[in-house]
Nucleic acid binder design. Sequence first.
DNA 1: GGCAGCCTACCATCTGGTAGGTAGGGATTG
DNA 2: CAATCCCTACCTACCAGATGGTAGGCTGCC
Lengths: 204, 204
Amino acid sequence: MAPVRRQTSERVLDIAEALVQTRGFNAFSYADIARAVGIRKASLHHHFATKADLGAALVARYRAAFLDALRSIEADTESAPERLERYTDLYGSVLRKGRMCMCGMLASDAATLPKPMRESIAGFFGENEAWLARVLAEGKKRGQVEYEGTPSSLAAFFVSSLEGAMLVARAGGDPRPFDDVVHHLLGRVRAKKAAPRRRRQPQR
Amino acid sequence: MAPVRRQTSERVLDIAEALVQTRGFNAFSYADIARAVGIRKASLHHHFATKADLGAALVARYRAAFLDALRSIEADTESAPERLERYTDLYGSVLRKGRMCMCGMLASDAATLPKPMRESIAGFFGENEAWLARVLAEGKKRGQVEYEGTPSSLAAFFVSSLEGAMLVARAGGDPRPFDDVVHHLLGRVRAKKAAPRRRRQPQR
DNA sequence: GGCAGCCTACCATCTGGTAGGTAGGGATTG
DNA sequence: CAATCCCTACCTACCAGATGGTAGGCTGCC
């Protein structure tokens, strides 16, 4: 039969990704995935020989998808504030699905993961910070945003705060605090001289 | 008679705490603890009947110790900026031990934990935010700190950013980015009119 | 004598992983 | 054209080791 339905290995990755994002790498098993996909455990090993292989594929795909999303943001708008807001939306939409950023989740499991995975996770954060740093530097040059300190340290600040906000918001079971953090973060770089975007957000 | 050696159950908690902070709740076993303490696995169940019980005791002790530390900070200084810096030091010293905040780590495992633990973890974050909010409100009243937005939303921002900074710093294996985040965070509330505080400013 | 604190021995269940086999489709070859 | 071959994708059956947890017994102190 022609491959009418999604490639099995893609479905495996989809399910594994959801499991990592909600439970963590050490809190799901091949049996869990097999059940969800509808094949036997042994067949999983045909697609991903070991759990480490599965993990590596998972991170690689996630990184690529994230980079795509970043490119798409840059293509859509040249406004730094808008780019930053779109960036925070990336995190927000994950949180609204009841999930944690996959690499944030894996970061907490890092000590138990094989080295290739750890390096790829660090790579994810590096890419994110590099992208943000570029957006921040460009935005400053154009007078779209204002801030003190280096673009790269502020970029790291963004990533850390967003990851932490997801973590804490999930622990409380309430996504609203996340939006507060986003608000503080974006307010931090808003150019004051520009149009009077007074936008005093309702403080709930 | 003074107990010559630490109570076994305290040693168990110490070791379990370190394991949670470095590996997560699902990545260590009773066997790991037993080996480290030097007793048999079955004896552990004498102190903590189930792993859930151990987890609950762990969080309870951690919360209490943290509250003690906060009280101690308030007793030591009345300066809001100093209090905030001392607060960030609490996190920094954990990170320098190669550990993650225990409740941050547990937050990522939350979906797999028994409800009492989850609630206690949320309680930890609530207490932290409440303390910070109080310090921030008081500090503003005294003109020691300046900021926009409500104290409680800024408090949540502090907690989120610090937790995230630990998470990301640990993933990269380098604690320096954490200090950057602390710097940004403290800079955000520094009163501009007040005397020039000579804090470290190297931007690495 | 009771009990805290420890022990040995054992349990069912789950873990990631392996061995070896079957079904079917597409290409290669006589 | 058909027979063969190979490969992908799946299967059943199994494995050793780890998991959290239990049953029941010993010892030494108040």
